[in-house]
Design a protein around this nucleic acid. Structure first.
Lengths: 250, 250
DNA sequence: TATCAGCGATGAGAATACGCATAATTTCAA
DNA sequence: TTGAAATTATGCGTATTCTCATCGCTGATA
């Protein structure tokens, strides 16, 4: 599995390259669009990751050129811009995914896996936590083998939870993930969707997976995995000292 | 990892740039808001550090403009102003952190790391001292394998203690860490939280970890380790030499 | 040892965040 | 245009956390 990265900042992508290397990807790294185009003339890649702000050519122009010369390699854009205008431009130029900087390594990894999965098949394209399974590509979600029907917002929330499982996600993060910073509704909506998600998960026996971290946000965990570590009546994830357990809807 | 600094006083930031450069950050430095905006049009940065008193545009206006154009890069403000009004204005414009000049280099470094940490990925986000373990991302804390349920303020205090383990932390530092100089309550609150923390730690056998340094503040230590090595006390915080007593609540 | 400032502990009221039902609005297909 | 589904907004009861006042105690200093 071969990846080409075009990014002028070698330090930032250094870690990404390191991580990908460990996942048995072969990574080439260039700093200019020119070099990237050149390499594409001679080699095939399974994925192309690029920033938009390359010095010699606007990122979307590079993408357009690649697509014009019939390069079908999936393209992932790395950028600090979150405006939908830029995103749309990137997508319409031919990008397949768009990740905002600074990015979370494991989230990027998951997305990369989703984009490269086709080429060699066998790798795991799915995100799993306990009985929960989510397919990034087909956007299907199942719990204990039962497929759930989720609305787009519900899916988007669950996707972020899975992409960054084990991390506390603030409502801000959800808003940003769901709306990309444009026409954002009230924050209160997030807990409405969380509530609906919880109920749907519960229907098929996946309880206590989304935990509230009071004053911060929400976190996704496999209750079976975490309760093993702690014994007595402690709650799934934040067993309490004195008394009160973490509140879990249900 | 790429940082853009906008500051008209090149001497002041010169040192910072030097230090950051050694930490393998790539640093660009401009002196006007105009230049900064221009660079943001063409490049992606992982962090933007700016003073408020730029000549051509009020700092917060610059921040607002960046945010309006959907730049999601974390923004750290450097300013000599300490009034909460200015701070609030900066934050509401879209800043992520606020450091007052003159600043402590290592503190600035820590904050910068915190702001850019996410992109560095999986590099050991856990802090440990003796039986205590803290995960910065999931905000989970465990003692001897038992997970604790901490409130957000309790967690914030423990986090600072662990981030700077072995150093005496004054109540001022805690206040600053918890409230960032905005709407700070009475200082007395800190020892209320310390008290609650100690009790929760004690419940699972972690006693004597938070030690009172009378008249100065608190320090986190592994009691098992310190009994042998209680004389590395040359740190900035023990001007009294060997006689300085440490008291432990119980 | 007397004195005083700093610290530990507690509990109650205030402030805040959350869960969820429900209502209003938007979207979209027929 | 109409109706159903999805999305967004609102409101309220409740859970949780924060803050403060207070009191008794501890350690520093002379």
């Amino acid at each position: 599995m071969r990846i080409l990265i075009a990014d002028s900042d070698s330090v930032a992508v250094g870690h990404l390259i390191k991580v990908l290397g460990k996942s048995s990807y072969t990574v080439d790294h260039v700093k200019t669009a020119d070099e990237a185009l050149n390499l594409f003339k001679h080699y095939d890649y399974d994925l192309f990751i690029t920033e938009l702000g390359l010095t010699d050519l606007p990122g979307e122009e590079l993408i357009r050129q690649l697509r014009r010369s019939r390069v079908s390699t999936p393209i992932m854009v790395l950028s600090s811009r979150t405006d939908s205008q830029t995103k749309v431009a990137a997508f319409s130029a031919g990008a397949d995914d768009y990740v905002t900087k600074p990015f979370d390594i494991s989230e990027a990894q998951a997305r990369i896996q989703a984009l490269t999965r086709r080429a060699y098949g066998i790798s795991e394209p799915r995100l799993r936590v306990g009985p929960l399974e989510l397919d990034l590509e087909s956007r299907m979600v199942s719990v204990n083998g039962h497929f759930l029907h989720l609305t787009s917002k519900e899916y988007a929330i669950l996707e972020l939870l899975l992409l960054r499982k084990g991390a506390v996600l603030t409502k801000d993060m959800f808003l940003n993930h769901l709306y990309g910073g444009i026409d954002e509704p009230e924050m209160k909506i997030i807990d409405v969707f969380i509530c609906k998600l919880r109920r749907k998960l519960q229907r098929f026996g996946a309880e206590h997976m989304i935990t509230t971290v009071w004053g911060r946000g929400y976190i996704l965990q496999d209750p079976a995995a975490t309760s093993a570590a702690s014994h007595h009546s402690t709650t799934q994830s934040f067993p309490d000292g004195p008394s009160a357990p973490l509140r879990q809807a249900g």
